[in-house]
Design a protein around this nucleic acid. Structure first.
Lengths: 145, 145
DNA sequence: GATAGAAGATATGGAAACCATATAATACGA
DNA sequence: TCGTATTATATGGTTTCCATATCTTCTATC
């Protein structure tokens, strides 16, 4: 019998381990953890304003300026003027250095391919659904704090 | 059809979202991300030496001293002399403030309970197995960088 | 045993990051 | 049009991070 708490423990262990992997990858690219997190969010969400990113991550706006300075200097993003609001800035992710990231995650990607190969389509659907639900739950739990 | 890459994306989204939740929880407890990560590792692994923790996390030993200073000051851990090696220190996790953590994660725990309730024992076993495999893969991927 | 070198943790000082506040530019409502 | 709100960033002080040095203790070799 698989207890609920054992799955909770497994989830914690997974996120902790992935966090360590991310930290190692980030280190190779001169990306601090907070920079890497912001970069991921930008690349997923598309162009967005610094203030929105600061709200999302809970960082101070002044801190966000520093984060974006580093990301811009590293060639990860570009700052653009928002055509609709001349006060605002749009942060656009640049694709130039994406291959470096892909390369560093190649081992993990390959391992994951191997794991998923052994599951049936139904099982994969189950896994995807579970992951999605947990992600939503985490977002809700954070917002209701 | 559930593609492999969609599950990879879901995993990235999950870890990113959990990272945000952790960051929020840590903030409420005056724990910086690096302190929180170290505290988790200590609490899972049991008493361990600062040098071992520094190696595991990739932090500089001098940085680890600062992390442990903060964790000790906050009442999260205690430094003890290693009886077998008088140079060494053993970091012991203290349980005093664990209820605070549990309380902040209560929403997430409850949501996860609700999600898992809807799965059969076989499905739970599948999920647990998948999570365990991915965790191992992440550890291996990190070590082979 | 005695001794040289290694290993462990921490002190010290300089560099970097974080954050509160102030500032400048722009938007928007009365 | 004027006053206030919003957006991003500059500035200065505090905290954190890291390289090096230092002190203690262990261990291998003589």
């Amino acid at each position: 019998m698989v207890s609920i708490s054992s799955i909770q423990d497994a989830l914690r262990a997974l996120t902790a381990q992935v966090s360590l992997l991310n930290q190692e990858v980030g280190g190779r690219l001169d990306l601090r953890p907070v920079d890497r997190d912001c970069l991921y969010l930008i690349s997923q969400h598309g162009p967005m304003a610094p203030s929105a990113l600061a709200r999302l991550t809970g960082l101070h706006p002044a801190t966000m300026t520093g984060v974006l300075d580093r990301l811009e200097k590293g060639g990860w993003i570009a700052r653009e003027r928002d055509p609709g609001d001349r006060r605002a800035v749009l942060i656009r992710p640049l694709g130039d250095r994406v291959p470096e990231i892909v390369s560093l995650y190649a081992g993990m990607t390959r391992a994951l391919d191997g794991i998923l190969d052994r599951y049936s389509p139904e099982e994969r659907a189950l896994i995807l659904d579970f992951l999605t639900q947990v992600t939503d739950a985490a977002a809700t739990a954070k917002d209701s704090l």
